[in-house]
């Protein structure tokens, strides 16, 4: 029998966590996207049918919602999860392309940069809308 060695190779644990969080954020996104869809497209239907508002979706109701902490947290969570899940998925696809895989660090940093920039821009837009 060949001699056994117990510390020959260890996968970088960061890669495991990116894989694991991709699945967790995917599950969370299902719940949050359903909530988002419900509040934006169906929550006002009763008021519309009762004749309390002219349209099924009214801007003032959406704007009012964005003054509440719970909805702001929901939107920020959705933004963060969408950016992480989407860009991490793009990273996985890119790293299976050999020229990109040879520049793993540059690809990762570029995507983090895109993610942070998109988050900041959207956060500023949200703050402007709330104020």
């Amino acid at each position: 029998m060949a001699e056994l060695s117990y510390r020959k190779y260890e996968a970088p644990s960061g890669e495991f966590w990116l894989w694991f969080l991709q699945r967790v954020t995917g599950l969370l996104l299902i719940a949050l996207v359903l909530l988002h869809g419900w509040f934006n497209h169906f929550a006002q239907i009763d008021a519309f049918e009762a004749g309390l508002q002219d349209e099924p979706v009214v801007f003032s109701v959406v704007a009012d919602r964005l003054t509440r902490v719970g909805f702001i947290a929901l939107d920020l969570a959705l933004l963060t999860l969408v950016l992480f899940h989407g860009l991490n998925g793009v990273r996985t696809v890119l790293l299976e392309w050999r020229p990109a895989a040879r520049r793993r660090r540059a690809v990762t940093r570029s995507l983090i940069g895109i993610g942070v920039a998109a988050w900041v821009v959207t956060f500023i837009a949200l703050v402007v809308l709330i104020l």
Binding site: L4, Y6, K8, A11, S13, F16, L95
Partner: peptide, 18 residues
């Protein structure tokens, strides 16, 4: 034991099971 832990650490990344 430690052997199993070593195997799991080795197969945990993008070059392994995940």
């Amino acid at each position: 034991g430690p052997e199993a832990a070593g195997v799991l650490d080795a197969v945990g990344g993008s070059d392994g099971a995940t």
